Amino acid sequence: MSLTDASPRQGLLASITENRFLALLSDSAAPLSRSDISLLSGISKPAISDAARRLEESGVIVSTGVREGKRGGVAALYEINPARGHSVALALDSAFVAARSVRLDGTVAFDKAERLPHGASSDFVIEIASGLLKSIEKESDSVLLAAAVSVADPVNRKTGDIIPMADSVFPAGHINPVQDLKIQAPEIKVDNDVNWATLAERSVGAMTEVEDFLYIHLGAGLGAGLFLGGALQRGARGLAGEIGRLRAPDGEDLTRTLSRLGFGNSSGSYGLDVQGARQLFERPELAPTTREALGYLTVAIANMVTLLNSSAVVLGGPLAALGPLREHLSTTVPELSLDSVDVIVGTRSPLDGASHEAHRLARASLGF
């Protein structure tokens, strides 16, 4: 066999070994030795030692000390090098802007949110977001490897561009986040906030073992994340799951229906008033219009469950934790659905989803 025939095979084996080496280090709560990794991976000690040398030379891992053996020997201990790189996640919402930076070893370096005033302009959103990104850059001592951006507007699944909507709960979000915020990273991903929250529940939340579920965002806007067959479904252009746009026979969409029944903004702008909605559920007894609104919302969710045959519904957003709302949906959605379905309140945010993906992209860029 010629050298040209052997090299690709040798390179492939080396890459697989390094990938396994890094994956084990990443999953471990403590530093590991080469012997530890050989034992856990089933890969020979010489191959692991070669991988350790290559990874240490590239700066992806660092030696953090030694462990003394029973026979007087010592073993070098390794961990992922946190200073080799970092990822950034940014969440643009109608109520706030949040940013998080995660080092390559998975530790959080920066996590901060700033509230937005009602009716904030695009320029103001860009100013706040840019300030958070500059703070991350100032405090970071490593290179930016990947970034992920969450926006409270639909995103074109093919281009990553924001899809402007005439009626939007976040018109100030109709920007090009990558260009306007001057984000420069080898890997950048932009997606809708509901999609990010759905992915967060799947990757690090309550749905890690569930292949088919429906995520419902209840806030200033209404949205649904469709996780079907083990994958997130975005539709032809990224508009799948717009439950707030579902229309009644008279042509009025669900968002406007709920607004008309007491959930709307006093200004008359499109979307729901989160604080006002909370107050509706603080009353000793729900008003007839509130009950009517709940009926419309329940039917919309139950119809989606029946259409998609989801095994679970995850409620998210600022209104999801309201006791009467949660209890009503948990009881009535299963009653109206064709098949059995669990209704729970989620624990993860869009920022969690974006941060998880940005960190995954950062690691993938270095081979694990």
Rank of each mutant, 00 (worst) to 15 (best):
P318C: 07
T306A: 11
L329A: 13
T332Y: 10
A300S: 14
L322Y: 04
L315V: 08
R326D: 08
A300I: 03
V299H: 06
Y296E: 01
N309H: 14
L319H: 09
V314G: 11
R326C: 08
H328Q: 06
G317I: 02
T298W: 00
G317L: 01
P318R: 06
R326S: 12
L325S: 12
T306K: 13
P318M: 02
N303H: 14
T306E: 03
P324G: 04
T332P: 00
R326V: 06
R326H: 14
S330I: 04
G323I: 04
G295E: 03
E292I: 03
L307C: 06
L325I: 13
E292R: 14
S310P: 11
E292N: 07
L325P: 05
G295I: 01
A302L: 10
I301S: 14
A293L: 03
N309E: 15
S310V: 13
G323C: 00
H328Y: 15
V305S: 08
T306Q: 11
Y296W: 15
P324R: 07
M304K: 04
R326Q: 14
A293V: 10
L329V: 07
T306Y: 09
G317K: 00
V299W: 12
S311K: 13
A320N: 05
A293D: 05
Y296F: 15
R326M: 06
N309L: 03
L319K: 13
N303Q: 15
T331K: 09
T331A: 12
L308M: 11
E327P: 02
A312T: 07
L307G: 06
L308G: 01
E327G: 05
V313I: 12
A321I: 04
V299C: 01
V305R: 13
Y296I: 04
A321R: 15
Y296M: 03
M304Y: 09
L325Y: 07
V299D: 10
A312P: 09
L329Q: 08
L322A: 02
L308A: 03
L315F: 06
S310Y: 06
A320K: 08
Y296R: 03
G316W: 00
M304P: 00
E327I: 12
S330D: 08
E292V: 02
P324C: 07
L308C: 05
L307D: 04
A321P: 00
A312K: 11
A320S: 15
G323K: 13
V314Q: 08
G323V: 11
A312G: 12
V305G: 09
V313Y: 02
L294M: 15
L325E: 14
L325F: 10
L308Q: 13
G295S: 08
G316C: 02
E292W: 02
V314D: 02
L319F: 06
L294P: 07
E292A: 11
L294D: 07
L325C: 10
S310E: 05
R326F: 14
E292L: 13
M304L: 15
A300C: 07
A320F: 06
G323P: 08
M304E: 15
M304W: 02
I301H: 10
G317W: 01
L297I: 06
L315D: 08
T298G: 03
L315R: 09
V314H: 04
E292M: 13
P324Y: 01
